[in-house]
Amino acid sequence: HSHMSHTQVIELERKFSHQKYLSAPERAHLAKNLKLTETQVKIWFQNRRYKTKRKQLSSEL
């Protein structure tokens, strides 16, 4: 499990705020920019979407 830097997370968050789903080319581009693997980016987005979904569910209770 590799640790992401604060800067990388900020960039991922910024991208996520604009779009929740990335196409393969977008993911490849973002990964390259942030010096991450595409898998890391993919998993981060999956986890981030899951967290957002959970938060929405709990706020509706």
Rank of each mutant, 00 (worst) to 15 (best):
18 H>E: 11
14 R>P: 01
29 H>I: 11
46 Q>E: 10
2 S>H: 11
8 Q>F: 05
16 F>A: 03
4 M>A: 02
57 L>I: 12
25 P>V: 13
31 A>R: 00
1 H>Y: 11
32 K>T: 09
37 T>A: 02
56 Q>W: 12
41 V>Q: 00
41 V>Y: 01
24 A>L: 12
48 R>K: 12
18 H>V: 12
36 L>Q: 00
26 E>K: 04
7 T>W: 15
61 L>M: 14
17 S>D: 08
8 Q>K: 03
8 Q>P: 00
59 S>K: 13
37 T>R: 02
35 K>S: 12
25 P>T: 14
50 Y>I: 11
46 Q>H: 08
56 Q>R: 07
54 R>Q: 13
37 T>V: 03
39 T>A: 12
55 K>F: 08
33 N>L: 14
11 E>T: 06
42 K>G: 03
45 F>D: 00
9 V>M: 15
45 F>P: 00
8 Q>E: 03
35 K>H: 09
47 N>G: 05
13 E>M: 08
7 T>I: 07
39 T>R: 09
34 L>C: 04
57 L>S: 12
36 L>K: 03
17 S>C: 15
21 Y>G: 02
44 W>T: 00
59 S>R: 03
40 Q>S: 06
10 I>T: 11
36 L>M: 08
27 R>P: 01
36 L>I: 04
43 I>N: 07
47 N>V: 10
45 F>T: 02
51 K>H: 12
29 H>W: 13
36 L>D: 00
49 R>D: 00
38 E>W: 06
16 F>C: 12
50 Y>V: 08
30 L>W: 00
42 K>A: 12
12 L>C: 06
50 Y>E: 07
11 E>D: 03
58 S>N: 10
37 T>H: 04
61 L>V: 11
12 L>S: 02
19 Q>R: 09
53 K>G: 11
13 E>L: 09
22 L>P: 06
25 P>S: 11
49 R>Q: 02
58 S>I: 10
48 R>F: 03
23 S>C: 09
21 Y>E: 01
47 N>M: 13
25 P>F: 11
36 L>A: 01
23 S>A: 05
32 K>S: 08
3 H>C: 14
19 Q>Y: 04
28 A>E: 08
54 R>N: 13
26 E>N: 02
24 A>V: 09
9 V>D: 02
25 P>C: 14
46 Q>S: 08
46 Q>K: 15
18 H>R: 09
34 L>K: 02
52 T>M: 13
26 E>F: 02
28 A>Y: 07
61 L>F: 08
31 A>G: 02
54 R>P: 13
45 F>K: 00
54 R>S: 14
55 K>W: 06
1 H>G: 11
55 K>A: 14
10 I>G: 04
14 R>H: 12
21 Y>P: 02
11 E>C: 14
54 R>Y: 13
41 V>H: 00
22 L>T: 01
5 S>A: 02
42 K>R: 13
59 S>Y: 09
42 K>C: 12
47 N>P: 02
43 I>V: 10
10 I>A: 08
39 T>C: 12
34 L>F: 02
50 Y>S: 12
15 K>D: 00
50 Y>M: 13
20 K>C: 15
56 Q>G: 10
1 H>I: 13
46 Q>T: 05
24 A>I: 11
31 A>W: 02
59 S>M: 10
2 S>M: 13
41 V>C: 05
5 S>M: 05
40 Q>C: 07
35 K>M: 11
3 H>A: 09
37 T>K: 02
27 R>D: 03
50 Y>L: 12
38 E>R: 01
7 T>Y: 12
15 K>E: 08
60 E>P: 07
28 A>C: 13
49 R>Y: 04
25 P>Q: 13
28 A>R: 09
29 H>L: 14
29 H>G: 05
49 R>H: 05
10 I>F: 10
18 H>T: 11
58 S>A: 10
49 R>A: 05
39 T>W: 14
41 V>E: 02
29 H>C: 11
37 T>Q: 04
19 Q>P: 03
34 L>E: 01
53 K>S: 10
40 Q>N: 03
48 R>Q: 11
32 K>M: 12
49 R>I: 04
17 S>T: 06
26 E>H: 04
25 P>D: 14
56 Q>S: 10
39 T>G: 05
13 E>K: 06
35 K>V: 04
5 S>F: 05
12 L>M: 03
45 F>N: 00
29 H>S: 13
28 A>I: 07
58 S>K: 12
48 R>A: 14
30 L>I: 11
47 N>W: 11
42 K>L: 11
4 M>E: 00
36 L>V: 02
34 L>G: 01
52 T>H: 15
31 A>N: 03
34 L>W: 02
32 K>E: 10
17 S>V: 07
57 L>D: 14
30 L>C: 07
1 H>T: 09
34 L>P: 05
11 E>P: 02
45 F>R: 00
29 H>Y: 10
19 Q>A: 07
42 K>Q: 10
35 K>T: 04
21 Y>H: 06
59 S>H: 13
39 T>Q: 13
40 Q>K: 02
41 V>W: 01
38 E>H: 03
43 I>P: 00
4 M>Y: 06
21 Y>D: 03
9 V>L: 12
12 L>Q: 01
3 H>D: 07
11 E>K: 07
17 S>F: 15
1 H>Q: 06
1 H>W: 09
19 Q>S: 13
20 K>R: 07
53 K>N: 12
4 M>W: 03
23 S>R: 03
33 N>K: 09
12 L>I: 02
43 I>F: 06
15 K>F: 11
23 S>D: 03
20 K>Y: 05
45 F>Q: 02
15 K>R: 14
33 N>R: 12
7 T>K: 14
21 Y>A: 02
10 I>N: 08
20 K>N: 13
10 I>Y: 12
10 I>Q: 13
19 Q>K: 14
14 R>M: 08
26 E>P: 01
1 H>R: 06
12 L>W: 02
11 E>G: 04
47 N>A: 11
35 K>Q: 12
40 Q>G: 03
6 H>F: 07
12 L>A: 01
54 R>T: 06
9 V>F: 10
22 L>Y: 01
52 T>I: 07
27 R>A: 12
44 W>E: 00
14 R>Q: 07
51 K>P: 05
5 S>I: 02
57 L>G: 14
30 L>G: 00
13 E>N: 04
39 T>L: 12
32 K>Y: 13
60 E>K: 08
11 E>I: 13
33 N>T: 14
2 S>T: 11
11 E>M: 06
26 E>Q: 11
15 K>C: 15
21 Y>R: 04
14 R>C: 15
57 L>E: 14
52 T>Q: 15
31 A>Q: 02
6 H>S: 09
10 I>H: 09
